[in-house]
């Protein structure tokens, strides 16, 4: 059983190109449809929890399914299944990258990729900003849903990052603590 599970997660690791959300249908196919290790309702609960907690969705589901089946041992085996393909493929790519990256031809090609990566990061950042400030995806933004607490945290955080070069973790954790406190104050004030 644990071997089947390991092989399932190996496939998930190998065929989910492009990050978290690309992996969801694959995980569903392997875990819900093929091996019936979870019901669809449990799976959608897992996706909700995975979105609320840190870490990649495939690792989260590997741990969740593995723990259920055979405790910590199961969790480790399933997670290894997800990680092993990544590990081997990226090790090879890293090896070639560091071997050839100083060639001028390779630099020319990479130079065209870099602005695109900046754009991708910007796009992800803006989506999260609107999700935080308006509690909605960009297509469904309603101005009356504007949250001033989140907006304040964002502006304050960005100011501290740019002016005082504060660390990333400090800003994220700090916004969590201050924001929760502000909401508590609002709740106390009625």
């Amino acid at each position: 059983m644990i071997l089947t599970l390991f092989l399932s997660f190996l496939q998930i690791g190998l065929f989910s190109v492009g990050g978290g959300y690309a992996a969801i249908p694959l995980i569903q196919h392997q875990i819900v449809d093929l091996h019936k290790l979870m019901t669809l309702a449990e799976f959608s609960d897992l996706i909700t929890v995975a979105e609320m907690t840190p870490g990649p969705i495939s690792i989260n589901s590997a741990t969740f399914v593995g723990t259920r089946l055979s405790g910590v041992f199961g969790a480790i085996i399933c997670t290894l299944g997800v990680i092993i393909p990544s590990f081997i493929i990226c090790l090879l790519l890293a090896h070639f990258y560091y071997k050839y990256r100083n060639f001028s031809g390779v630099q020319t090609v990479l130079s065209a990729l870099r602005p695109a990566v900046v754009a991708l990061i910007a796009s992800a950042g803006l989506s999260i900003l609107f999700l935080g400030v308006f509690q909605a995806e960009k297509e469904h933004i309603i101005l009356s849903n504007f949250r001033w607490v989140e907006c304040l945290l964002f502006v304050g955080g960005l100011y501290l990052l740019r002016k005082y070069k504060l660390g990333a973790i400090t800003v994220i954790f700090g916004s969590g603590v201050i924001g929760t406190f502000l909401y508590w104050l609002i709740w106390m004030a009625g």
Partner: peptide, 26 residues
């Protein structure tokens, strides 16, 4: 966990911090 209001609020406000970090890098 899913229904705990404090955890929900903490996770929700932390997004503002995450957005600040990403935009700073951008």
């Amino acid at each position: 966990f899913r229904e705990n209001p404090i955890i929900a609020i903490a996770l929700q406000v932390m997004r503002a911090g995450v957005a600040a970090v990403i935009l700073d890098v951008v």
